[in-house]
């Protein structure tokens, strides 16, 4: 067991090094032509353009240098439009947390009611089915128009994209709680609230948590896109801004950090899920 883990870690590292190596070698082979224009012209353009080429894809060492630059001072604020990557990530996480928690506060109770009542389930299901597949970003113009505030709009977009998996999973989890468990509660004359919290909620918790895990993944995907669209602050805006500057190294750094934060969010919820999962 131990040696298997060790071996896969070694293999992982080897794949990483191989990948970086190939990347570095291929990015080195492209450049290095001789200057084809006069010196005055060369001063006005990038190094690649001076040799009659296009600016190449950054090499891993350039990306590494950028990564170090961003990580060595992640929390600086030098103006409205110039803040460190840590601050931008914090903005995104705060927005995701806001929209996501609102969605949970709405979806779990409502999903509970829907799951408990076949009448409500039947009545609301068509709406849910129509609204659910809508790309959350399609809501953005509508949100901006009606809410009239871009940061609340992005929180709204997070809300709307994370609400469906939680709602559907909660309703499904609650509706499919085994009859015998609710019967146990009934024969013990347990009141409706206590039944909800002590029987139905724990019974449906793994399903609800699965929905929450799906939601956080979607929310994190969407916030990056929403911030690219609306701008201002956040890691999505950071990507947009660096794209504006055609700085692929910074974009790669951002991509890496988006991936890491996304993984951390997912793992956090996976851990919570494990806490509430039971074996039948």
């Amino acid at each position: 067991m131990r040696s298997l883990a060790l071996r896969s870690a070694l293999l992982s590292a080897a794949i990483f090094l191989l990948f970086i190596g190939i990347w570095q070698v291929s990015s080195m082979s492209g450049g290095g032509g001789s200057q084809v224009v006069d010196d005055e012209y060369a001063r006005l353009v990038g190094a690649a353009a001076a040799t009659g080429q296009k600016t190449p894809f950054p090499s891993p060492s350039e990306v590494g240098a950028k990564l170090w630059q961003h990580l060595s001072d992640p929390f600086y604020v030098r103006g409205t439009n110039d803040m460190g990557i840590g601050i931008q990530l914090a903005y995104s996480i705060a927005r995701v947390a806001g929209g996501y928690l609102l969605a949970a506060a709405f979806a779990i109770p409502v999903g509970f009611l829907i799951g408990m009542s076949p009448l409500l389930y039947g009545a609301l299901n068509p709406y849910i089915q129509i609204l659910r597949p809508i790309s959350p970003l399609a809501w953005m113009p509508l949100a901006l128009y009606t809410i009239k505030d871009s940061s609340i709009s992005s929180i709204f977009v997070i809300f709307i994209c994370s609400v469906w998996p939680m709602l559907i999973n909660t309703a499904f989890g609650v509706a499919s709680v085994r009859r015998e468990w609710t019967n146990v509660a009934r024969t013990l004359e347990v009141g409706p609230l206590r039944t909800a919290f002590r029987v139905i909620l724990p019974a449906a918790a793994p399903t609800i948590m699965t929905g929450m895990r799906i939601s956080i993944g979607i929310a994190w995907l969407v916030i990056v896109a929403a911030e690219m669209l609306v701008g201002g602050t956040g890691i999505g805006y950071f990507v947009w801004n660096e794209w504006n500057n055609l700085s692929l190294s910074s974009i790669l750094v951002a991509i890496l950090s988006i991936g890491l934060v996304g993984m951390a969010l997912d793992q956090g919820l996976a851990r919570l899920t494990r806490l509430v999962t039971y074996q039948e």
Partner: peptide
């Protein structure tokens, strides 16, 4: 309706799986 006066032992035991043995009883 159901009553605490008539306890049921179910065909499939119907224990709450997220509670321990004593948890089920104390519920």
């Amino acid at each position: 309706g159901p009553s605490l006066d008539r306890a049921v032992i179910f065909q499939s035991h119907a224990l709450l799986p997220w509670l321990s043995a004593i948890g089920n009883i104390s519920f």
